[in-house]
Design a protein around this nucleic acid. Structure first.
Lengths: 259, 259
DNA sequence: CGAATAGTTGACATCTTTCAATACGTGTGG
DNA sequence: CCACACGTATTGAAAGATGTCAACTATTCG
């Protein structure tokens, strides 16, 4: 939010180990990558992965530091290997909108015409696979199925963006938070973290900027969801779906909370 | 908005003339299409257009009728040839969010995983080029540059969707309307309709559902923009940018209007 | 000419934000 | 091991902005 954050860049992260993908250190080991099937690399035969390994590098970003910034020339494309990131856009006076949260397997920096369309910040420490954009494009020439898969990813992102527009434009705070929890839960489930009970990777302030609300309203909405017995919060970060059906009905606006 | 609108489908529009593209009637004449350069067909050599002509059909949709509906299997993909369309999503109780407006040259029904992600309704009468999805995909196999162009289109749409999220989540009503007018103006300019003075294709209610506001608030925001001498409205549909710089500054939040 | 539709304006209600205070949890240092 | 301090989350009270309801105007179309 503050301009001073710009001084916090952490761009010279030296290559190191890769805790989110496997136990190896120093360089890429795509063949043993645990999240390959979740991302574009899943389009490759094991033998072809050698081509990917040749153009990939690993980077670490520490908590609250930026991987890249909006409007910066998009020389690189990234695949999130471990951790979580917030993707945000800023207004002149500091108002912030988070356009999405990246989880392991997500591609970053694709939706671009030469420049990044958002800033990517680490929530907690993060590991990414970095590709030089031009090298990846060259790879696409040889493996057209990769480009097709990329188109599928872009379409999925687009559909998610449209859902988020409906949320931002027309849902109430409780509906927004219910939708957010429901959607996040399904994403975490795909990553193998159990579905109806999980840990929020991001703080209330991030959730607020994602849903177009203030932290206070987010907090009050959590409280209302607790009151409706839709969720439980053993700690502020730990979420349990005590009544998923009610939560989903609240998220879609099928039912409303009275008081 | 009302469920009864579902009875208004106009799916059996017989093939007819194609006023938005050229003067011919009955069947496609892609070579003389005036908007080809604005869309995916611009990726073809004139000779290759014959392949496109073979799989395209024209359709007319009359005002306020649907071309396709959200959740419907997406058998077809469309290219808007003339007119304008609203792309909308509905909540159970009728709340509506317009995720975008389609103008000539825009592709419809791409961002999909088997089912359309929004409903497309005609604003006024409309002409579209219809492609069977499978046939278009087959064409992509032969012309990979077309797929690349499609990926570019998807990326542009994604960037626009992110801008819209910032608008919906964090901008004030006046900023929303100013942004909307500014962006629409640039799109119309590309289509050859003069930039700083143009006609709104859509009603206030559509603008409201696009910006996450009510008609009344949209109307009041127009009035405020008039008061700031940023725009003039000779008629409710006719917009003139009397001070584009002020309008842009208002749109980005750089300046604010005092009551 | 009258009815219908769309847009604008006004008065008021409501809900979210704002501002302020309190509670909670974690980590540090005595 | 406890006390304290800091950051985060929650709760409360008040203010303000947008939504709601209603009236009025303008334009279009029979």
């Amino acid at each position: 939010m503050s301009p001073s954050q710009r001084d916090l860049h952490d761009r010279d992260c030296s290559p190191g180990n890769w805790p989110g993908c496997d136990g190896t250190e120093q360089h890429a080991d795509c063949i043993h990558c645990h999240i390959r099937h979740l991302t574009i690399c899943g389009a490759f035969e094991p033998a072809e992965l050698a081509h990917v390994e040749r153009i990939v590098a690993h980077r670490h970003v520490t908590a609250d530091h930026q991987l890249f910034e909006e409007h910066e020339p998009s020389e690189y494309v990234y695949n999130l290997a471990s951790g979580a990131m917030r993707l945000c856009k800023l207004l002149a006076d500091g108002r912030r909108q988070i356009t999405g949260f990246a989880l392991p397997g997500d591609f970053l920096g694709l939706a671009t015409r030469g420049k990044y369309s958002y800033t990517a910040e680490a929530i907690g420490d993060v590991t990414v696979c970095r590709f030089k954009r031009a090298a990846l494009m060259a790879l696409f020439q040889r493996f057209p199925q990769m480009e097709r898969r990329l188109l599928g990813l872009a379409n999925d992102e687009l559909a998610a963006a449209q859902d988020q527009m409906l949320l931002l434009g027309r849902k109430t705070p409780v509906e927004k938070v219910a939708s957010f929890l429901f959607t996040l839960s399904k994403r975490l489930e795909r990553l193998g973290r159990s579905g109806p009970i999980f840990t929020l990777p991001m703080a209330r302030a991030d959730i607020a900027d994602f849903l177009g609300l203030t932290v206070e309203t987010v907090s009050r909405s959590f409280t209302k969801l607790k009151g409706a017995h839709a969720i439980a919060l053993p700690t502020p970060e730990r979420v349990e779906f005590t009544n998923p059906h009610v939560l989903e009905a609240l998220a879609t606006g099928e039912i409303t909370l009275q008081p």
